[in-house]
């Protein structure tokens, strides 16, 4: 019998080499060994065949990720015949069956975690948790931004010295934006600007210009994007309703510039929700 295990001079990492999950340096070492070892070449071919069979690479009827999640959750929107065909597929496809097991185990873990979170609260507090959380959140927002209090939307409560802050999100075109953002007068506005995927993780200097390029607001301090690749800006006021462009310029060493066209409209026009 052959030994390709530890101590025999053969890499014990062949399965990971075949799976493509070895770090580059180890992969190079294994590749060099395999190139001169007939036995390991055979093992690699066997493992590759095993992997292909496990992943069902000759099949084309794998349920999509969305379907499998819905199936695992026993979602009633999955038609009965589709449910049956997915169940039949799982019986013959180890990869999808394993994915299904992982999803089910994770759902149990998540449910247990939420349960223990509730259990850790004092008696009676669990039931009231949501109400208190809502009230606390609303209170904080009321103070900071004159927003909504309670369970139903209420008109902003004026707080002396603090003006109501309107939130808005600007998305770049290829992250789903199909129209320009809208800010409703009067300000101020808290604007979350999502940078395009792949944008430099550098500080950005922001400015507002008219469509013609005239600077309306500029000279702001540079801001650093958060971990989700968004920049958070506070815009105090804009001179008038009209069409503007928010410009984000990366501070050196990056030289990227991103432009977000938006409109400022007079009151009574509902916020864009974007």
């Amino acid at each position: 019998m052959l030994n390709w295990g530890p101590g025999a001079g053969h890499p014990a990492l062949l399965p990971w080499y075949v799976a493509g999950t070895l770090p580059a340096r180890e992969a190079r070492r294994v590749r060099a060994h395999v190139a001169r070892c007939a036995e390991c070449q055979r093992q690699v071919r066997d493992l590759a065949a095993q992997r292909a069979a496990l992943l069902g690479s000759t099949r084309t009827d794998h349920p999509t990720a969305e379907e499998l999640v819905a199936f695992t959750d026993s979602d009633p929107t999955v038609p009965a015949d589709r449910r049956q065909s997915i169940a039949a597929h799982l019986a013959g496809c180890p990869a999808c069956a394993h994915e299904n097991d992982l999803l089910a185990e994770a759902a149990e873990r998540l449910s247990a975690a939420s349960h223990s979170e509730r259990e850790s609260l004092p008696p009676g507090a669990a039931a009231a948790w949501g109400r208190w959380a809502a009230v606390a959140a609303a209170s904080i927002v009321l103070i900071a931004a004159g927003f909504v209090a309670g369970r139903t939307p209420q008109p902003p409560v004026p707080v002396p010295g603090i003006r109501a802050l309107t939130a808005a999100t600007f998305m770049p075109a290829h992250r789903g934006a199909d129209e320009a953002g809208i800010l409703t007068l009067p300000g101020p506005w808290a604007v979350t600007v999502a940078l395009p995927f792949g944008a430099a993780a550098a500080p950005y200097r922001s400015g507002i210009r008219t469509v013609a390029g005239e600077v309306v607001v500029g000279g702001a301090d540079a801001v650093i994007p958060d971990r989700e690749g968004s920049v958070h800006l506070y815009l105090d006021s804009l001179p008038a309703a009209g069409e503007y462009v928010l410009v984000l310029e990366a501070v050196a060493p990056a030289t990227e510039t991103w432009r977000y066209p938006f409109s400022v409209v007079a009151g009574d026009v509902p916020p864009s929700g974007r």
Partner: peptide
């Protein structure tokens, strides 16, 4: 989540970019 806020309000707050939501 044990949120007492109606779903429609959650959605509108999320779409409006409300930080807490």
């Amino acid at each position: 989540m044990h949120d007492a806020i109606p779903t429609t309000q959650e959605v509108s707050e999320f779409l409006a970019g409300r930080r807490e939501r």
